[in-house]
Amino acid sequence: MSEKKKLRVATTSLAGCFGCHMSILDIDERLLDLLEVVEFDRSPITDIKHCGPCDLGIIEGGVCNAENVHVLREFRNNCKILVAIGACSVNGGLPAQRNHLELHDILTAVYQTEGGLAHGVHIPNDPELPLPLNQVHPIHEVVKVDYFLPGCPPSGDAIWKFLTDLIAGRTPHLGHGLIHYD
């Protein structure tokens, strides 16, 4: 009998702090068990630059600029199941706390009127830099998202429970103690 095909998983961080990825590492030695059943595609763990066809995509962080949109779409186009992981991905999180302000006012304050700016500083306009969106969006406002794993970050145990449920074909269920928004 042939070896069971491994689940192909991609992960990325958009407007996030990589805290959720650190928490993925917090599942500790169970990572080895995980690697028995999954293989990683694009992810900070593999350094693969673009996402190929995957069973599962895990997105940390919200959508705050044009590049985030491109990456998110790449994941959505390639992943059968897309998971939002962490507060920023789920509701915009810390970056979205700028949303009640006008982007114009923010850029002006940060690059033009704040004290301590170097002389001649201007709003960066290098074409290499992705432009910021008017507002920061949780990923479900931009693409269809199949599952959500909230937390800032979700604990290693929550991630483990979530992934093992999903891999086993169960709808993930966290329950008291594992479900957290903070």
Binding site: E102, L103, H104, T108, N125, L131, P132, L133, N134
Partner: peptide
Amino acid sequence: ALSEARQMTG
């Protein structure tokens, strides 16, 4: 949604 940033950066 990129309009403001376009305007600000030219």
